[in-house]
Amino acid sequence: MTETSTPVKEQRVTKQRLAVSAALDELDDFVSTQELHRILQDRGISVSLATSYRILQSMAEDGAVDVLRNPEGEAVYRRCAVAEHHHHLLCRNCGKAVEIEAPVVEKWAVKMAQENGYTEINHTVEIIGLCPECTLLRQAGQL
């Protein structure tokens, strides 16, 4: 038994989708839907907040963006740097994210699914802590 994902459905290419995609290509960090909407508005690109949300959701479903929850529980998005399935280390202070591969987690997820009769599984792992820079700030009493 192997992990499977939902087949990618073909998305209609619209000016709004292209604008969202281009903006994400220029950003290095995770961004909320509201932040991305503001960036697009500042650039004079007319995309509603609801459309921005739908585009980001479909891009996440297609694996074109990573989606995490920030400490406030809000979904944040970033263009995937790694094409294959991966997980994240996330700094709870500055929001820095590192993409990691975790073959042991993959095997564990498949084993747990098999033991419980689940098929067509998918999973997400986020490890939240302090990055090295924020750890140094904490140790220096600056955080």
Rank of each mutant, 00 (worst) to 15 (best):
residue 102 A to H: 09
residue 113 A to T: 01
residue 120 E to M: 03
residue 98 V to M: 12
residue 125 V to N: 01
residue 108 W to T: 09
residue 123 H to R: 08
residue 115 E to N: 11
residue 125 V to K: 00
residue 116 N to K: 15
residue 131 C to R: 03
residue 126 E to Y: 05
residue 126 E to I: 13
residue 129 G to K: 02
residue 95 G to D: 04
residue 100 I to S: 01
residue 110 V to R: 10
residue 110 V to L: 10
residue 98 V to H: 05
residue 117 G to N: 06
residue 119 T to S: 11
residue 106 E to D: 15
residue 99 E to S: 15
residue 124 T to Q: 08
residue 119 T to D: 09
residue 103 P to E: 06
residue 102 A to G: 06
residue 120 E to H: 13
residue 97 A to W: 01
residue 113 A to N: 02
residue 124 T to Y: 07
residue 113 A to Y: 03
residue 127 I to T: 07
residue 119 T to C: 03
residue 98 V to K: 06
residue 131 C to G: 03
residue 121 I to M: 11
residue 95 G to P: 00
residue 114 Q to K: 14
residue 107 K to D: 15
residue 117 G to A: 07
residue 118 Y to H: 14
residue 116 N to T: 15
residue 110 V to I: 15
residue 119 T to N: 09
residue 102 A to S: 15
residue 126 E to V: 11
residue 105 V to P: 00
residue 115 E to Q: 13
residue 100 I to T: 13
residue 128 I to R: 13
residue 111 K to Q: 11
residue 112 M to F: 07
residue 129 G to I: 04
residue 101 E to Q: 12
residue 115 E to I: 02
residue 101 E to K: 13
residue 97 A to I: 01
residue 130 L to S: 04
residue 105 V to L: 12
residue 101 E to S: 14
residue 114 Q to L: 09
residue 97 A to K: 00
residue 95 G to E: 01
residue 118 Y to R: 09
residue 115 E to A: 14
residue 132 P to I: 06
residue 117 G to Q: 04
residue 124 T to W: 08
residue 128 I to A: 14
residue 132 P to Y: 07
residue 114 Q to S: 09
residue 113 A to C: 04
residue 107 K to Y: 14
residue 97 A to S: 14
residue 99 E to C: 03
residue 125 V to Y: 02
residue 115 E to T: 02
residue 102 A to Y: 07
residue 122 N to A: 15
residue 96 K to H: 15
residue 95 G to R: 02
residue 104 V to I: 11
residue 98 V to N: 04
residue 104 V to G: 12
residue 113 A to Q: 00
residue 112 M to E: 13
residue 105 V to A: 07
residue 103 P to M: 06
residue 102 A to L: 12
residue 121 I to D: 01
residue 109 A to I: 05
residue 108 W to E: 12
residue 102 A to F: 06
residue 116 N to Q: 15
residue 103 P to G: 05
residue 127 I to V: 13
residue 123 H to M: 08
residue 128 I to Q: 12
residue 99 E to T: 14
residue 112 M to I: 14
residue 122 N to P: 01
residue 111 K to C: 05
residue 120 E to S: 10
residue 96 K to A: 12
residue 110 V to S: 05
residue 123 H to N: 08
residue 132 P to A: 05
residue 124 T to V: 07
